[in-house]
Design a protein around this nucleic acid. Structure first.
Lengths: 182, 182
DNA sequence: ATTCGCATGTAACTAGTTACATGATTTA
DNA sequence: TAAATCATGTAACTAGTTACATGCGAAT
């Protein structure tokens, strides 16, 4: 049982999903590839933490919908109360920021402008996502105990992070050229 | 050449270091283990991106100090101007937050309180680190072009992130118990 | 015409972790 | 006296990525 296993179980608590859907939903945590997800789902099914159901489709490939079992739910709940492993962020951009003295000013500025553009896009998508969660919850913020609560707080965390990144980039740009308004 | 290679080159631009020191300094980016770092340093030396110097010590084990070469510097500079790979954050805590509905309220609250405690410690260390960088720069904020600039902005990014995490945890706690002041 | 979305899988590889191995000095 | 710091390395393993493989329907 690695953290990806728990992530999959966690998403299946909310609703039964196909591997394909899970791969897309994994974006909130980190982007696991389908080549890692599919074999893991099989393994979790072998361990009876999941069951699967084949769904025939027309015009689209058939799919396998996974459901969490009671023992899957138990294992997840158990793991929940243990103190989590330290987070790891692997971000090449920080290496570039660290070694910034090596580049020319225009290159440095471009790096930060591109970063802002990227996070502007992701944060807009994030706001739309949060709005859709609120909509799904009948137009109000989900409360603890409701299935949507976890999703709601996690996407909010991500949004904050994305907005913070933009703010930091703007701060660095202001240091890069003290005379201009970026 | 993977991102860890560039991270090592980047840190060696600032000053020559031993593998042991580099392993500790890697904390700003992510915590790479020495078992990954030592063999990589050898490989980078084979490729002539680094040179090493043996330093005999008394009372302590001897060490190998690595220096970046001109071609190492060139390769790093070249990589700098390319657009960076997307950041990846693997954080088990987010999985727990997502599946929060599965736990009882006291467990949920403990999870967030522990998280706050952890980031309170790291953010205090971070502030000390930033203060020491400013001190090293003669008591003022380093400017673009100075070697310390990159370190300064990166540690500031980390500090913001840590403070944001605490703020988010407090927000979640306020949702968990709307009647108490956390 | 080509690319995108749907959908699932395996094979080969690279990256990262844990454990093994050693050993003196310093601090709690 | 137990643990932490300094210091470097290898072996065995797990986790994650890239590439291979297939194929229809819809949109551009």
């Amino acid at each position: 049982m690695n953290s990806l296993s728990y992530a999959l179980l966690g998403m299946l608590v909310r609703k039964p999903c196909s591997g394909y859907e899970l791969a897309k939903m994994m974006e909130v945590f980190w982007q696991a590839k389908h080549s890692q997800i599919y074999p893991l789902l099989s393994k979790l099914e072998e361990q009876a933490l999941l069951t699967s159901e084949n769904v025939e489709q027309t015009g689209k490939p058939n799919k396998k919908i996974y459901h969490i079992t009671e023992s899957g739910r138990q294992i997840l709940k158990n793991w929940m109360s243990k103190s989590p492993a330290l987070p790891v962020t692997r971000d090449e951009f920080l290496i570039k920021a660290y070694a910034l003295a090596l580049t020319e000013l225009p290159t440095a500025k471009r790096l930060f402008h591109d970063r802002i553009a990227y996070y502007q896009t992701t944060s807009e998508n994030r706001r739309a996502k949060i709005a859709s969660i609120i909509e799904e919850s009948g137009g109000r913020v989900p409360e603890f105990g409701e299935l949507q609560f976890g999703r709601y707080i996690v996407h909010n965390r991500k949004l904050k992070m994305e907005e913070e990144e933009i703010a930091w980039c703007k701060w660095v740009l202001s240091l890069l050229d003290p005379n201009e308004t970026n």
